[in-house]
Design a protein around this nucleic acid. Structure first.
Lengths: 198, 198
DNA sequence: GTGCGCCAGTGACAAAGGTCATATTCCAGC
DNA sequence: GCTGGAATATGACCTTTGTCACTGGCGCAC
């Protein structure tokens, strides 16, 4: 079975890869970031993508969306530190087969991989419950603007980056602030990030 | 050789533990947080403590300080996600033998463990440079103001929290922005946090 | 003891951010 | 084909934020 392992922290990646290689029929390829993983996916077929969410380049969710769009038969298992509700919904929408927290032991990861390969869905129960609660109120533009604002970019930078007028950029941020009951853009970004909507 | 492995993320902990156990003479005990690790240290002697910094209960640095105070012969290797300069200095002061980023592969961890056991110091070179380079230019008030601003509090909130006039609060933030070459308070907070000054 | 540098503190003013009214486009439902 | 809702878009208006000039206190060097 060919597995692509995408995870940016080298120690975690190499440790997981070494362990998975101990399983007789697992053939593991490593990718250090989202971009490298995408290139691998384009070059050769894999049976399974095991990916972190937060990585430089592309996120695990974006990789799953690519696989879905290309109608590749590759199954996807996401592992992540944070059990943010927003991620779970987007992951399910992207056809992800498994969603685990790094809080789970490795045994559980191996058993999840095997379950997903037989076509089952394995979503951490705690996460699933969370995801049923509030859902992401932000539009895509609002999210983009908020993400840039959170990195300290000024309104004019954001407007330029999104090819819109400054007033529009301010408006998106204002809407985000209002939807999230925040005091200002920083507060809004903090709230959105905490919920996994950013 | 008896090793105590303290790391809160179960997947990372169990993966590292399994790999280290493959080495013939490594005997690994796991601790899921700082408090559990401290209890283990009190109950039995270890040759080496391998610890994350950021954990619930006690941090890896605090564990190293305990070992130093108790004059235990246990060596300490710290592994962490963020190479914040502030941590490195405190770790060296606490007599830590090794300081690695999770960005390093597992092989390097094993070789670092062996080196530290022979009495050598292994500090990630990038980290060492960082800690010797720039030093924190912020005054305590500036840091407090910046921390509150980063959480999305308004200037008037900050002024109230620090018992100063709004103008003063704005001035602290302005100085911080200027010292850090930032575009605004958010940018300044991001830079300061990244350098470990917040 | 006087001058210097640094930190703490303030208010006036200019620049950026936040809100609101409003317009256009697109799509789902009738 | 019309209606209503949601997303996108803009500019006018007021509030918050950032900058600057200035004052006072404290410690330290000469």
């Amino acid at each position: 079975m060919k597995i692509l392992l995408a995870e940016d922290q080298a120690m975690v990646r190499t440790a997981l890869a070494s362990l998975l290689r101990l399983e007789a029929d697992f053939q593991v390829t490593e990718a250090a970031d989202g971009t490298a993983a995408l290139q691998q996916l384009k070059q050769q077929p894999f049976d399974l993508l095991l990916s972190d969410i937060e990585m430089p380049g592309k996120t695990g969710i974006e990789l799953a969306q690519y696989i879905q769009q290309q109608k590749q038969p590759t199954k996807v298992v996401i592992i992540t530190t944070f059990g943010r509700a927003g991620y779970v919904k987007r992951a399910i929408d992207a056809g992800v087969g498994g969603f685990l927290l790094k809080d789970a032991p490795v045994d559980q990861l191996v058993s999840a991989i095997n379950q997903v390969m037989t076509g089952k869905r394995v979503i951490d129960s705690e996460l699933l419950l969370n995801s049923l609660g509030e859902q992401d109120p932000l539009t895509e533009k609002e999210r983009q603007a908020l993400r840039l604002a959170a990195d300290g970019h000024s309104t004019s930078d954001i407007a330029a980056a999104l090819y819109i007028a400054e007033g529009t950029a301010r408006n998106y941020l204002s809407e985000a602030i209002s939807k999230l009951n925040a005091a200002n853009r920083i507060d809004a970004a903090r709230i959105a990030r905490q919920k996994g909507w950013l």
